[in-house]
């Protein structure tokens, strides 16, 4: 089992589909999808997706790896779980989309790496790891500037009024970011998480 998902050589080459079944969280139930469309119909942001989950799943079967991993479907899921509770084949759609998003970033898909969600996640992690909490200034700052210097400034300026209001209402502190107690314990948790993730990449899906 490779860390990187295989590229299909032709339509319905099952290399990619099998990799997803075996490596993506919930992927083992993906085979049960009968393409009824309940998931896509249930999705509150379905119209904002390149493909609804249903079609995305068919594309996985068809071996359309690039189209799947570069689609915004992976990033637009809001985890409402409507699809999951309604799916007649009990496919955990939400888990699958989230895990595919991780795969897309890991494999360096431009649409994934550069997606708002990916950059926001990086900013979130940066703050969380460093301070044990999310500091609005650090998260937004890092997120805004991840698009480049001028874009960062522009976005920052655009939101200046909101920021100021938050400060006035004491929703955003000034001064140095607060740190949590027990950062060492947090580190242990995060290290364990990394270890699990590494194991996943190695092909196993164990806990």
């Amino acid at each position: 089992m490779t860390t990187t998902s295989p590229q299909a050589t032709r339509k319905y080459d099952l290399g990619f589909a099998r990799w997803v079944y075996e490596n993506v969280d919930g992927g083992d139930r993906l085979a049960l999808c009968m393409q009824c469309g309940t998931c896509s119909g249930s999705c509150p942001v379905g119209t904002q997706m390149d493909y609804g989950p249903r079609k995305l799943f068919m594309m996985i079967r068809a071996g359309m790896k690039d189209a799947v991993l570069s689609s915004n479907t992976l990033w637009n899921c809001v985890s409402c779980y409507n699809c999951v509770v309604r799916c007649p084949r009990q496919v955990p759609v939400t888990y699958i989309l989230h895990d595919l998003a991780v795969v897309a970033v890991r494999e360096g898909y431009k649409e994934a790496v550069e997606s708002d969600n990916a950059r926001f996640s990086a900013a979130f992690n940066f703050s969380a790891e460093r301070y044990g909490r999310t500091d609005e200034r650090i998260v937004t700052g890092k997120f805004y500037f991840s698009e480049g210097l001028s874009a960062g400034f522009k976005k920052g300026m655009d939101n200046m009024k909101i920021a100021w209001n938050m400060v006035k209402t004491k929703r955003m502190p000034l001064g140095l970011p607060h740190k949590i107690k027990g950062k060492g314990e947090l580190k242990t948790i995060l290290d364990k998480a990394r270890e699990i993730e590494e194991r996943h990449k190695g092909g196993g899906k164990g806990n």
Binding site: L14, R18, Y21, L32, M34, Q35, R61, R89
Partner: peptide, 24 residues
């Protein structure tokens, strides 16, 4: 159309679980 009426629906699911790919 996949026509697995009655409890044959279980058999359809079994084939899916075993990795048979269905293309409409």
């Amino acid at each position: 159309e996949m026509r697995t009426p009655g409890t044959a629906e279980e058999f359809y699911r079994e084939a899916q679980e075993q990795g048979v790919i269905f293309i409409k």
